[in-house]
Computed example of a mutant assay.
Amino acid sequence: MNYRHAFHAGNHADVFKHLVLARILTLLTRKEAPYAYLDSHAGVGLYDLTASQATRTGEWQQGIGRIWDAPERPALLNEYLDCIQALNTPEQLRYYPGSPELARYLSRPQDRLYLNEKHPEDGALLKENMRQDERVAVHRGEGWHLPRALLPVAEKRVLLLIDPPFEQADELTRCVQALNEAIARVRQSLVVIWYPIKAEAQLKRFYQDLGQSTAPKLLRAELWIHPTDNAERLNGSGLIISNPPWGLEEELAELLPWLATQLAQSQGGWRLDWLIEESKPQTSPNSPARKPRTSQGIKR
């Protein structure tokens, strides 16, 4: 419970995570039916980039700072950037939205948000930041219990973000357990798991466990800004997405090369593939499997 995201708000991992989250939320709104957004480790919801925590590390300057100053940006960034623009003046980029604020901004009147933050101070700040929105319920319990505590909900469509601080050695295992719990309670749960990439070899067991999970289909998207061979630094991050909405894979195939180029600090790259592919119809047993898409060697 020592982790405070304010030190890292707006860095390269945040940009990647929140941009993909914005695309998922936007795709969900194509259907009129309401959805429920659940956030297991929500943070405070809104971050001041001029506060002492953010200025001490300055990580946002190599993340959202680069995106904000980019002369040409893909149209797929629009919803994500609209949220940030709504929080700031044209003269200064000061406030950055965490996942709760981004979800609150992009959701509709019929949608509901269930946010959880266990850290005492951050949980209180989250409740304060969300107090004026009746669609939002803030919980301050154990984030890992969220699937069993809240699912199923009244809304038939569910988006669950699992984004722990990764302070404990077993958190990758617990991510897979939470994924299985959510799928067991709502088969078509759209679960998004964020994870850090340091040395890629450390993730081998995680990938194996995910491949053996109960998810009907599982998409993996990764973005790195350094080579993935140094366990002493955050080289990049990844997102595991169960039951992704139609169209997301093609959007990520467009976005990831641009992000890798824009955010690379030494040598960047990206990967997009399926850990679990959707079952093929029996009428087409010889349909070729989708090839993984990957790129490395983007230098800055």
Rank of each mutant, 00 (worst) to 15 (best):
P281C: 04
T173Y: 14
D122Q: 12
A9M: 06
W194F: 08
E155Q: 12
L126A: 08
I24K: 04
Q282I: 07
N230R: 14
Q62S: 15
L179K: 13
P257W: 02
P90N: 00
A22M: 02
I193R: 00
R187D: 11
A103F: 02
P34M: 01
L223D: 13
K31Y: 03
E79D: 09
L38H: 09
L218M: 05
L102Q: 10
K31L: 05
N235W: 06
N230I: 03
A253C: 10
Y3M: 04
F16K: 15
F166D: 07
K204C: 09
A137H: 03
Y114S: 07
L151G: 13
G123C: 04
R174F: 00
H41R: 02
E232Y: 10
R271P: 13
G141K: 15
R104W: 01
A36D: 05
Q188I: 02
L25N: 04
A201E: 15
V44Y: 00
G297M: 13
A6K: 04
R112M: 06
Q267F: 02
K299A: 15
E200D: 13
G65K: 15
S266G: 08
T283P: 09
S99L: 01
I183N: 02
L179D: 05
D122L: 14
L263F: 02
A215P: 03
Q208C: 00
N286C: 01
A182G: 04
Q53R: 11
E249G: 13
L219W: 12
D69G: 08
R108H: 06
R56M: 11
D39N: 07
P90G: 02
A199F: 01
D14E: 10
L190T: 07
V186F: 05
G268T: 03
A231L: 07
Q212K: 13
R140E: 11
E222M: 11
G247K: 11
Q188R: 12
G141R: 15
E254M: 10
L49A: 01
H18N: 07
S237Q: 03
L252R: 15
Q267W: 01
A182P: 08
A75L: 11
L113M: 05
Q61S: 14
A264F: 00
Q132F: 12
I193D: 00
K31Q: 11
A178P: 04
S279E: 09
L19S: 08
D209R: 06
S237A: 11
D229C: 11
E155R: 05
L81T: 05
Y207T: 07
V192H: 00
A199W: 01
R73I: 15
V136G: 04
A201N: 14
R94N: 01
L219Y: 12
L106H: 01
W60V: 09
L190D: 06
K217H: 06
L87S: 10
I197Q: 14
